[in-house]
Design a protein around this nucleic acid. Structure first.
Length: 221
DNA sequence: GTCCAGGGCCTAC
DNA sequence: GTAGGCCATGGA
């Protein structure tokens, strides 16, 4: 079986087992962008707390985030951890939006995808995964998002090395899958959800949906 | 108490 | 281009 077929088989199996994800969990595109920064190396439940606080303070908006002072923002996002860095990262993002499109996100995502990706990566605090999450889940642009879970799952399937670079891993998926925003959206979401609900230590859990594709043999304990 | 979570930056090599 | 240290909270 070629990689194209294999990747689609794995996708179909995950979708059958886990069902649709309805990602990204956010009410607006700006909320997706904010969540993408807040979730950096942080459990989503902690991000949710910060998001709720931002909403309660009525500053989860372009104008709100533009005007709030650093100390206040820092205090509100504290539950999401790394709050001093993330305060600056959020400010950097909002200043980019101000300078680039005056906060008009619809206009922002009309740009050329690769040009926009390069500009996002120029923002201090936006790396590959954050940029691609924003482009895919807020901008509906066809970028496959790689994260630690993706590398963990697919290295276990012997389809890549855990240390594979972001670019190489992304290339692997994008070369071997049709360029389809909805497919990229759902595939990444399913990988994350799989990792939230399954043990990923070797050998495979006996009820793991990916057992048919897993090359590690379960050994009796 | 220890480990980890939907990373990214900086520095050294 | 990459390995290691750093950033911080909250749940398991």
């Amino acid at each position: 079986m070629g990689y194209q077929q294999l990747l689609l088989k794995i996708y179909e199996r995950l979708y059958q087992q886990l069902g649709p994800s309805h990602w990204w969990p956010a009410e607006t595109n700006l909320e997706v962008m904010v969540g993408a920064i807040l979730t950096q190396n942080t459990a989503w439940r902690n991000v949710e707390k910060a998001i709720v606080r931002l909403k309660e303070a009525k500053i989860l908006s372009y104008d709100g985030l533009l005007q709030v002072d650093d100390a206040r923002l820092s205090q509100l996002i504290q539950p999401a951890g790394f709050y001093r860095q993330k305060t600056q990262y959020l400010k950097n993002l909002i200043y980019f939006l101000r300078d680039h499109c005056k906060g008009n996100l619809k206009q922002l995502f009309e740009d050329d995808v690769h040009g926009l990706r390069k500009e996002l990566l120029n923002i201090k605090g936006v790396g590959y995964e954050t940029a691609d999450s924003i482009l895919l889940y807020a901008g509906n642009m066809p970028l496959f998002v790689i994260d630690a879970y993706t590398k963990r799952v697919f290295s276990r399937l012997k389809l890549m090395d855990e240390k594979t670079s972001y670019q190489k891993a992304q290339e692997f998926f994008m070369i071997n899958l049709p360029t389809d925003v909805q497919l990229f959206n759902e595939y990444h979401a399913l990988i994350v959800r799989l990792c939230h609900t399954r043990c990923l230590k070797k050998p495979c859990c006996e009820d793991c949906p990916l057992i048919p594709f897993c090359l590690y043999k379960s050994s009796p304990k």
